[in-house]
Write a protein that binds this DNA or RNA. Structure first.
Lengths: 120, 120
DNA sequence: TAATGAACACGCTGTTCATAC
DNA sequence: GTATGAACAGCGTGTTCATTA
């Protein structure tokens, strides 16, 4: 049993959630997460987002499609990579989330314990 | 800003607390911690305890004394290393604890956020 | 600048090994 | 088994670099 939850697992959880809400692409989700965690002073590194996404693909949870961004072709031909759930991806994601939830609770318990034990 | 609190910092916090209560030695504190964290399935590796102790010495928080364990010399000559606060060790420890507390709170916040954001 | 990806180096950590009693 | 310490290997992570539009 590892000490704390890994950053990778934490990020994967958020990415799965974002794909559940609407299919998205890496850079977009990165920027959203940066914004969400600003109050905590935590800046998720972009390499971690892409690595997490690639792992979720390798694990058969997500698959990729490519798309040109923007409606006006004369303005922007930038290609983006969209992520979607595979056939049984939703199941796999649900199982993964369940595991992460267990670990999250365990970690919260250990941190609360540290506060209770060492700070009166 | 790192993602989560480091195991090293977490253990140091507990070691400082144990030295505050009574001067102790490595193996003893290790066994106590193993017992304390059993419910969480977390087994602190002994190398981490010794590393943390050595760092606290290098940082000028603690100093070491050696002592033979046991009252009856015919039974046990095992040598143990006891740890005590240095002159300004208590101050340094208090400052360190304050910093760790801040980080603990931040981490608890991030874990709670993950539960709130990803589990309805 | 938006967007994706890989490379590279570093540091923490877990296991193992060494030593002594 | 108690007690301390170091070595060693591996993995996660952060920074940097590369590329395209």
């Amino acid at each position: 049993m590892a000490f704390m939850i890994a950053q990778r697992a934490y990020i994967k959880l958020y990415l799965i959630n974002k794909v559940e809400q609407r299919r998205g692409y890496g850079y977009q989700m990165l920027e959203e997460l940066k914004e969400e965690f600003k109050p905590f002073g935590y800046v998720p590194p972009q390499s971690e987002i892409y690595r997490a996404l690639h792992e979720l693909v390798q694990e058969g949870v997500l698959y990729r499609t490519k798309q040109l961004k923007g409606n006006d072709p004369s303005v922007d031909f930038q290609e983006i990579v969209l992520y979607h759930f595979t056939d049984n991806g939703a199941e796999k994601a649900a199982l993964y989330k369940k595991q992460v939830k267990t670990d999250l609770d365990r970690c919260i318990g250990m941190l609360h314990k540290a506060v209770a034990d060492n700070f009166v």
